[in-house]
Design a protein around this nucleic acid. Structure first.
Lengths: 350, 350
DNA sequence: ACATAGATTGCATTCGAATGCAAGATGAAT
DNA sequence: ATTCATCTTGCATTCGAATGCAATCTATGT
């Protein structure tokens, strides 16, 4: 075929404009491949050529088609972010950070908000067709599900999750260490009657926070704490604090909550329903360091997760795995940062 | 060419598996187009064929390539969601809802979190190459930017924004009506000295809330309220409440805030720094009905936005515009729902 | 058994950009 | 001016699925 006559259907309204690299090429009097190269950083193009093509592209309003590019190059420049409960106060910040950082790498984010952990399978089915370059999972995945990633060679980085006994890459906050810090500080300040408002049993980080706290309490020789399981919501924190007050005689004097929001719920229950103020009457600590933990009504003593550093690490790791396929897995653990507040009698060590 | 010998590079590790429709076709002993049709709902395929193909696809682990499909069909099944400040407590819920609803339509979400309104141009440049089928914008766009959508025939639905004087489709909460409800209820309860903690001047909804409140206050014959501008953050609510207390003599008795978070900040400032409790000493109302507005320490009197109905409307509208290109623009306005709380002396009308 | 409408199927082409290869252009060194 | 190395450029092919068209098959009615 001498000349591929691409008969564009030019709409009468003159609006539609699927300007392709061929159009630009014709307008600039060069070949399509030249146009392609001009839009590829680092390609071998003379200045004269580049100027000419860019001018033509400008004039026609050309925008490279990422879809076509992905198809031929095998790189979609898309990553998927799976988040199990977006309405958990902690995640919006994480999501915003991740999105912006990926954006700086020229990578776009496909968002998947799981309704529940059970959605994971369905979500994965939705992800695969888009041939994403990688995935950040802030959601629990089963070993089988992780296997699907390996089968497809899709890089995966867990965010604040990990599969115990599996080498999958992850970026985490050191839950155990944080929990120990909290117990220690409370203990030093004189607390002996602990209680734990834990996360749901499916939550790996929740379990870690809980387990480490229990162990530390035991190590220090305090009584075994009552352990109540919540779902990370304000309401559950509130309700479980109520539960703790059922036996007024031996109510706890220090309540360790698996996240800030439940801690806030507990504080409210103690204060509103029982007239107990923190830190005079009872100590309450949380975990995460979300925005509202700073609100004056709560002023939470908590462990703040270094979100910026963690998201940066997650993005860097995933990008590296994408660029260099064979890269070994890596787990990065960041220490939580103690955030002094007024919700607990607390003494930091030295 | 008798037979297109597709020489797949079968990796030695046996892991890689870009199974294509050709592979499935060969394995099932049918043509590639047959495979394609089997994966297209509503296509003309016999049961026998479908079973055979599906079995082969299953055996090979075939997953249709959405990228290739998009290229030829001209539909990416992607929508972009632009959100200006994700960390605003109000948006995570919106985002989660939108994502899940789109997912039910087989549409995936590309997320763009703008660092500031100024990022819009850059963001649009990132969006166009992906040939998204439509966009939901919870961010301010200039008329020029909206023009870019029209030029490309990309359906656009504003969420809680709109361009005054332009017919772009949008889903909004009735800000004016909500503001009036709040003023009315406060007035009926006896308040006469209003103050307004407004949103930033760039925020269209903020301006609407403010303007409507001012007008109503004037209509009712109360004094012109002082108007302070915040940035929707807790800190700004707190600081502006402080500001209002500078002139103790004639401090306001009812403070109308442009969103819940600032209202919460104001409540804390009044209580913590000045010993003023709501609603006895001062009334404070917010707007949005975010999660923390229910927290017992605040128990905010506010106008809740019907997020579920609004997101449903937004998704339905955008999908309709995508399916039927010529569709006229439409603006849907939902009334906010009065949410009784304990942060204000308030009397609902009858 | 035969004609015919309707349902299935395969063939060949298409979407838009990237890229290996070879041809052509440019420049440097002699 | 000649040769060779280095840049540039264009040609032709490729990615993987969708689809118009024509060929084939099926079923139905007579």
């Amino acid at each position: 075929m001498a000349e591929k006559t691409r008969s564009k259907i030019v709409s009468i309204k003159g609006a539609r404009q699927p300007v392709t690299s061929y159009d630009v090429a014709r307008h600039a009097g060069v070949s399509q491949s030249a146009v392609s190269r001009c839009f590829k950083p680092g390609a071998s193009v003379s200045k004269k050529m580049r100027d000419r093509v860019m001018k033509a592209a400008e004039e026609l309003g050309y925008e490279p088609n990422a879809i076509a590019r992905s198809l031929i190059s095998g790189r979609s420049n898309l990553v998927a972010i799976m988040i199990s409960n977006l309405t958990n106060l902690y995640y919006p910040e994480v999501l915003a950070e991740l999105t912006q950082r990926f954006s700086e790498h020229g990578v776009r984010v496909l968002l998947f908000a799981l309704r529940s952990e059970a959605d994971a399978n369905e979500t994965l089915q939705q992800i695969w067709p888009y041939r994403v370059d990688g995935v950040i999972a802030a959601a629990e995945l089963s070993p089988e599900q992780v296997g699907e990633f390996e089968k497809r060679d899709v890089p995966l980085v867990f965010y604040n999750r990990h599969l115990t006994g599996s080498p999958v890459s992850s970026v985490c906050c050191d839950q155990e260490d944080g929990a120990r810090q909290l117990v220690d500080g409370l203990f030093k300040a004189g607390h002996r009657r602990f209680a734990i408002i834990a996360g749901p049993p499916e939550s790996v980080v929740g379990v870690e926070r809980k387990t480490a706290a229990i162990e530390r309490i035991e190590e220090l020789g305090a009584d075994d704490p009552p352990i109540l399981e919540g779902d990370y919501s304000y309401e559950s924190g509130f309700a479980l604090a109520e539960e703790l007050m059922k036996h007024k005689k031996k109510r706890p004097d220090a309540v360790i909550c698996a996240n800030d929001v439940m801690a806030i719920g507990a504080l409210d229950a103690f204060r509103v329903n029982h007239g107990l103020n923190a830190p005079e009457d009872i100590s309450v600590v949380g975990f995460d360091g979300v925005g509202p933990s700073h609100w004056k009504s709560y002023n939470l003593t908590t462990i703040r997760q270094p979100v910026r550093r963690m998201t940066e690490a997650a993005v860097t790791m995933l990008m590296a795995m994408i660029e260099e396929p064979g890269l070994p897995n890596e787990k990065r653990v960041f220490s939580g940062i103690f955030q002094a507040g007024g919700s607990a009698q607390f003494e930091t060590g030295n």
